[in-house]
Design a binder for these strands. Structure first.
Lengths: 336, 336
DNA sequence: CAGTTTGGTGTAATCCATTGCAAAACACTC
DNA sequence: GAGTGTTTTGCAATGGATTACACCAAACTG
């Protein structure tokens, strides 16, 4: 017993009007006589008619669907952006096709092509690195692309971010002011521009302004995970650094716990500042001082921009920079 | 300068064959002479033709898209399931339309209807409670539905879970064996069957078997969040309970931190066991003993079941129960 | 009151593929 | 070379909407 589908044609017949009129009623086109509208709506109600979005998409060339590429949904940072994206998308009646890319270039390109095949009206891309191949794909795409929480040093693609370099600079400068001279920095892969070209640059700038020497051996590269942090901690301890800036909250949590366990007092022996202000920063003991970012808003603003682009409107600014802050918790000493 | 689209018709013309043949080549239909196939593939390559998935969906009545309803992507528990779902979906060439429901019945129904309008081939539903309204919608849907990490006490809908009641019973029994007589239980809303009909039932069973009295006032209802945990902690402390089972990891983290801060020693004064073994359980100090669940697999198995249903195959079992475990960490004393 | 707008509705083309059926092409057999 | 059986291929219907265009009727204009 196949579940049969009610089509616009059925409605037209029952209501004794043409398909065009039914379509107008469904789409809220004002050029329909109120009496006709009422009659059609009654039939729609009676037959429980629901427009087929696929057919609609084919005819109108708009799928009211946007593609979202995310490195990993289980990463709280990106998941928070995704939440902002979805909420705004829903507000504008768009749906989200969400796909994990694992930050892998090849996979990103693949996914992008699948999304284009599905005729998404736009794409929001999240990732840690944009390379030429990706840029080329973005150009090739018929749909607009917006980057969320993702930097493209070349700035071709519209994007929403905070000023990572300035945030790191401010955080590190605060450490310097408290007298630290050996400040380590633990980041994700330096092959990713967010780390190499923004965070590290901010760190260098802070050192520079304070006329402190930049020392390669205080720069650490690790994975974005708790375990990576615990493994990295002894190395940092050996370096003699008295403070560390960390590029990922889970990594920072790993460093904190491993430090405490090996008898290092935080913040007395080592001050720690991290980057994303996720819930993790409140759970550790001591809790972690962090750069704060409007995560939800980064996603939300990116989606708002995308809706504009999808409707062929101009963007006020192509590269949006939202404000960041720094929230002090117990992993750093109070400023004097 | 409109970006023009290459259609199957263009390919057919250029290759001097019919659309049907092109379609066969694209879909890997074996009834094509190798020479023809090669010729068509060459043209496809040259024109950079990519099939329009929407048109394909309309003609074939399959969208190769599945809907996924999730309470909140930023919840690590559900996000982990989603990751399993997406990986398997991708393996079977399906895409995921992901939508947040906030666990709100009305929103869930809405979203379900939108997904059906988009002609998804199947739906994976995650949530904390299934009511009659939802069950009715599931029946009405033309596409199969599978529940992931979500119980339906009536068991109409295929689902993948662990045996929550047994897990809680085992955890609480272990506490009882260590001599606890006043064991509190902190859960999410009791209006949700996972809490009222499974976790609480397991708790009662454990007490029952040990002939301990069941005391209403040791049952706490709170939100699934860190803050809810910190707020709940003083109440638990006042109850005189010497151990507590918690239904959510973030809530447990809140209870732990608030306890430690108010001078309560964990596990000496209060033992804590939680439910989901997310990364949070490793980050707190003490780390939290937890029921372990194969989160990724719950999602993955659910998606596998859905692919079977979408291809009209029979399910071996409709209600799949995956194994759980209990991992001891520092928030409980070692068993003697 | 003829002439022009405007409003409401229908006709039919279009969107881009899939697919059942029929025909053509080819290979064999006797 | 006719007859039979397979492969290949094409024709054309189909899926369920949107939308340009045409048309008629009602309302307005001077």
């Amino acid at each position: 017993m196949e579940k049969q589908t009610v089509t616009i044609y059925d409605v037209a017949r029952e209501a004794a009007v043409s398909m065009a009129t039914v379509s107008r009623v469904v789409n809220g086109n004002p050029n329909v006589k109120p009496a006709t509208r009422k009659k059609v709506l009654a039939v729609i109600e009676r037959l429980d008619y629901r427009p087929n979005a696929v057919a609609r998409g084919l005819a109108s060339k708009r799928s009211t669907t946007v593609g979202v590429i995310i490195p990993d949904v289980t990463n709280i940072y990106f998941a928070s952006l995704a939440r902002g994206i979805d909420d705004i998308a829903m507000m504008y009646k768009y749906n989200i096709i969400l796909t994990n890319s694992d930050d892998a270039g090849e996979q990103e390109v693949n996914v992008l092509n699948t999304l284009m095949a599905k005729q998404v009206d736009g794409i929001i891309f999240m990732g840690n690195h944009i390379d030429d191949k990706l840029r080329a794909e973005f150009k090739r795409a018929k749909a607009p692309v917006v980057l969320a929480g993702t930097v493209d040093p070349q700035g071709d693609t519209p994007s929403v971010n905070i000023d990572y370099a300035a945030a790191v600079e401010e955080a590190v400068t605060a450490l310097i002011k408290r007298g630290h001279e050996k400040i380590a920095i633990a980041l994700g892969p330096l092959s990713q521009s967010i780390n190499a070209e923004y965070r590290l640059a901010g760190y260098k700038r802070a050192l520079n302004k304070a006329k402190l020497p930049y020392d390669d051996s205080l720069v650490y590269e690790a994975g974005y995970s708790y375990d990576a942090g615990t493994k990295l901690q002894p190395v940092i301890a050996d370096s003699g650094a008295t403070a560390v800036f960390v590029g990922d909250d889970e990594m920072a949590a790993g460093i904190i716990n491993a430090s405490v366990e090996s008898g290092i007092s935080i913040p007395d022996d080592l001050e720690v500042i991290t980057s994303n202000d996720t819930i993790v920063t409140q759970i550790t003991r001591p809790a972690i001082t962090s750069i704060t970012q409007p995560l939800y808003d980064i996603g939300a603003v990116a989606m708002r921009m995308l809706t504009k682009l999808m409707n062929d409107k101009e963007l006020d600014e192509k590269t949006v920079t939202l404000p960041y802050g720094i929230v002090r918790r117990a992993s750093t000493k109070s400023a004097e």
